[in-house]
């Protein structure tokens, strides 16, 4: 079983990102589970969402304490939340930032990966919506999910132009991060 923890801020679509990863992974033949960390949702407040992927049906219902992978949608969260908490040493922490991985001093053995998802979002989607891009980037770094499946999940959820722009951004993020795998 692989476990993913997503950190974001209310309004950034962390829960949607988790949902998209679960839908895409299922299309790829895995069983999946996505759920929010049940906060009292307020725009801008730190939000956590979780994803589990497995070859067999998932029964475990607890939150995720030792994630294989962490996705950070907003780099300012690094100062507020211990995003590295429990992160497995052979996994990675993917941060949306224009900075380099070396500029983050986190108490973890997990590899730090960075991507300027906000810039990519502005360039391709025209809005600073990074959740779908980070889902694509996650697929690129981890190799766990096919980019086509994430694009299909997004197109299903947001049909038409919005979905198409997001799909293009997902592919771009996937290509950038796959090169670093």
């Amino acid at each position: 079983m692989k476990e993913i923890r997503i950190h974001g801020r209310g309004g950034q679509g962390s829960v949607t990102a988790a949902e998209l990863l679960a839908v895409a992974a299922f299309e790829d033949g895995k069983y999946s589970q996505a759920f929010p960390a049940f906060g009292v949702e307020r725009r801008g407040a730190p939000v956590t969402a979780f994803v589990r992927l497995n070859d067999k049906p998932i029964r475990l219902r607890s939150q995720i304490y030792e994630p294989d992978y962490v996705i950070v949608q907003d780099a300012t969260l690094v100062d507020v939340v211990n995003v590295a908490a429990g992160a497995k040493p052979d996994g990675f922490i993917l941060i949306n930032t224009e900075k380099s991985p070396e500029s983050f001093i986190l108490n973890t053995k997990a590899q730090i990966k960075t991507l300027d998802a906000t810039k990519l979002a502005m360039d391709i989607i025209g809005k600073p919506i990074v959740n779908t891009i980070l889902a694509g980037a996650f697929a690129g770094v981890s190799g766990l999910i096919r980019p086509e499946s994430i694009k299909n999940a997004v197109m299903e959820r947001f049909p038409g132009k919005v979905g198409e722009k997001n799909a293009a951004a997902i592919q771009a993020a996937y290509d950038l991060m796959e090169a670093q795998r």
């Binding site: 679960a22 996505a34 759920f35």
Partner: peptide
Amino acid sequence: GFILSHVYEP
């Protein structure tokens, strides 16, 4: 509540 009502699963 939440654990089942808000989870996405197959």
